[in-house]
Simulated assay, not measured.
Amino acid sequence: MPAGSEDPENRALSPFVLLHGGRHGGWCWKRTAARLRSAGHAVYTPTLTGLGERSHLLSPAIGLDTHIQDLVGVFGYEDVDDAVLVAHSYGGMVACGAMERVADRVRALVLVDGYLPRAGESMMDLVDPATAEYTMDLAARDGEGWFLPPTDAAVWGVTDPADNAWVNGKTTAHPLKTYRDPVGPTDRAWAHPGVFIECLVPAAIRVPTARPRERAAVDRRFRYWTLEAPHDAMITAPHALAEKLRAASRLDPR
């Protein structure tokens, strides 16, 4: 074997950092994380400020930078290195912002139906105008103008009655400011090896896919994969998603 090369079968398994999307928490990765751990990976499932078990901290002051700092802190305090950073939905905004500070510790960035912003864009800039208007109206009507209330899990494609009840019992309100704040630099996210996984089963929530498709067509280190699952694939198809994530961990990052 040439000097400096690495046998992917012999290297230590990369840890995973699994980042949830809006109104979710680290809890949503429970099933997928269990499968990754059973395969020998270390797995971290942080919850962003104001959500999940941290919902008691919800306030109008929580913005995108707060959530970026949450994610950066996981890498620093848990000594995470050579990780596969996986971001779902809104979590893509957070992960792309955080990459400016943690890219050296990330083996691959994986977006699961996640947003892929350029510097200066907010999530509201990336959704279609009708969705942006609906989101603002919802916050004004049912969120005191500054938060988004929980919604039925069927919106994310969770239709099994037991799963739907479980998710509905755990989703929380989400601070609107995080959707409206522009992200800072994202150059390192765009320059990094990565994967976009599109969830193909129709759901009310659909993220823009044109940008990652175009990037995959010209960037040999960025792949575009698909998964036969709805938006909340970590809940409805944990085994299939875990297999995709493990495949991402084995990609050559060079």
Rank of each mutant, 00 (worst) to 15 (best):
R101W: 04
D104P: 05
D128P: 10
D70S: 10
D82F: 05
L71T: 14
T159P: 01
G63F: 08
G76S: 10
L111Y: 11
M123D: 01
E121S: 07
F75Y: 14
Y115I: 00
S55W: 02
A140T: 13
W156T: 06
S89T: 02
E78Y: 13
H88P: 06
A108G: 08
Y134K: 15
L116H: 01
D113R: 01
L109P: 04
L64V: 08
V72G: 05
Q69R: 15
G157H: 00
A140Q: 14
D65N: 14
I68K: 00
V80A: 03
D152T: 11
S89Q: 12
A132V: 13
A108H: 14
R107M: 14
Q69H: 07
D82M: 04
C96K: 00
F75L: 08
W166Y: 15
H56C: 08
T159H: 14
Q69C: 08
Y90W: 12
E78A: 09
H56T: 15
D79G: 04
V110R: 01
G120P: 11
T131A: 15
L148Y: 12
T159I: 09
D160K: 07
R141S: 15
V102S: 00
T131H: 04
L126K: 10
C96D: 04
M93Y: 06
N164C: 15
H88S: 11
V127M: 08
D137V: 14
R118W: 02
D65S: 10
D152P: 05
E53A: 09
Q69P: 06
R118Y: 04
Y77A: 07
W156M: 10
V110D: 00
W146N: 13
Y115S: 03
V86G: 01
G91L: 10
I62G: 00
L64W: 02
A165I: 10
E144F: 12
L71I: 07
A61V: 02
G63L: 11
V74A: 02
R101Y: 07
W166N: 13
S59T: 08
